[in-house]
Design a protein around this nucleic acid. Sequence first.
DNA 1: GTGAAAGCGCTAACAG
DNA 2: CTGTTAGCGCTTTCAC
Lengths: 336, 336
Amino acid sequence: MAREAGVSLATASRVLNGSSIRKVSTALAEHVRDTADALGYLPNAPAQALARAATATVGILLHDVSDPYFAALARGACDSVVAAGLMPLVVNTDGDPATELRGVRMLHAQRVQAIVLAGSGYTDAEAAVRLDVALAEYRADGGSVAAVTDHGPAYHTVRPANRTGAAELTRALLALGHRDFAVITGPSRLRVPGERLAGVRQALAEAGVELPESAVLRSEFTREGGRRAMASLLGGDGGGRVPTAVLALADVCAVGALAACRERGVRVPEDVSVAGFDDIPLAEDLSLPLSTVRIPLTLMGAEAVRLALRTPADTVGSFDAPVQVVLRSTTAAPRR
Amino acid sequence: MAREAGVSLATASRVLNGSSIRKVSTALAEHVRDTADALGYLPNAPAQALARAATATVGILLHDVSDPYFAALARGACDSVVAAGLMPLVVNTDGDPATELRGVRMLHAQRVQAIVLAGSGYTDAEAAVRLDVALAEYRADGGSVAAVTDHGPAYHTVRPANRTGAAELTRALLALGHRDFAVITGPSRLRVPGERLAGVRQALAEAGVELPESAVLRSEFTREGGRRAMASLLGGDGGGRVPTAVLALADVCAVGALAACRERGVRVPEDVSVAGFDDIPLAEDLSLPLSTVRIPLTLMGAEAVRLALRTPADTVGSFDAPVQVVLRSTTAAPRR
DNA sequence: GTGAAAGCGCTAACAG
DNA sequence: CTGTTAGCGCTTTCAC
């Protein structure tokens, strides 16, 4: 401690944290500061946290940092956290409600100032309730919560226009002349795929185009999931009807779908158009630059932290992220 | 606190943490546990940290979570941390020594149990010393440090075979018949690009192949850096000599290089072979599946945490990560 | 303006 | 085996 070294005692606290309204003579303050970093003094954050009843940390809960979508989100969120003078704790949930629940509890135990929920939102009502309870307890202890993706009106929310974006993408494909679609959507336990699928259905309905249930394939939101889904679409397994356009509701799936096409010598976009959703960083560098819907991932992450940190507890803020359809090389007019 | 609710007092601590050797009658223990989660009790981690003089956190310092290389590393490290019952704090440094130094200090202030340094290693001796000092102070306070990439004998180290990997990759290209090389390397402030470049030089020298200084281009280890470097290589700016093989010493650079080729209508691998290094997740899905050197990124991250956490303070552990040359579609025998 | 003292929530000796 | 009693390192009233 600077106390022993310097002459003063807990006055050191006053100069080294600045929060206190009490002033310290500039001379003394300078002396304290000098001896402090002469001794290489670093405040003990846990001790401060205990005394102040507030940590300098923010929790970020996401499916998987190594997924480009969440990586971009994480980067934005982390920057925002650091800019606020806090430290980010990041926890991977793998999109599993139980893991997410544990994550919330751990972050609560850490007494993080805020929790950012990215890519949460489960269809399982029971899981949602358990999560809500945990979050309520966390908030009762003074914590703040922001969600990327709708989590109900009770939370600060950063909302990508999933439905609209999907509808616009679909309309873009319709405009190219496609009438025969298939959709590779995500697992039913997540809510996001449902929102996107609804957008697709809406646009298709408006155009009077059918989307048979057999043309809606569920897969994990992973490359492998997309690959398998596309493989079954192309595979000789009976059905046989290959659509002219395949909408993968996440870019990572689209990547897998493209891989499946490559493996089977199916040409994109000549034989089939493929589109993704998210515009992950490497989307334009893929085997074919991917047509997709751009979401401002990094911005959204940052925005979520901002909401959680700078919004008074009695109001709930929200941020609607714009989306934009980007048609690149994986889509073209149908040849059939 | 469970104290008021139950009948006992700080005995609660004994049942709720388990560290103590003292036993508690199973009946009482159960009662405590019951009331604890009936009340939704969650231990206050900062308070525990203060009392135990040890937090349940680990710091992870890396350039950028949204860079696929570090994202994969981070995922491995985070999993390892969580598996150890701890929480990961991740800090982005953008490859800047000053930011990294601040990061170390912040993590030290948080009293994290261990710090994992990923992608650190600067050529600037002064910066290295400052970092060493900060790390020494951290260790003096009981902290543990592990580095991914060599940081000197004083630290636990996870070491990808940068030099060997680069040499092998070069030999693979030589075996294809290439004699005219260019290298897109990283910024001089980092040590990794130097190691990789040394491997390239060594293999080339062994084969008696020249690598003129003008054929070594420095760029940031980013897509844009790679794009610019390749553009200048292809560009009509005087030199004019386009090599038959371009080694980008990081996959993200290779991605940019491929983009530059695409923009200018230069065919890969017919006109020029391109190879990367790292085998980042989407490497095989690029405009052309990228030839590269595979590094077990996720494993390395996990290994670093393991070393930091499970190695006694008086010894230093290390882990040599295997690398593997993967030749995909961006390389072929030269046509010229 | 600056010091003294109490206490944040928990753990860890100590007794009983 | 279980309760009592000190602190952990810091902030923060409250007097001086």
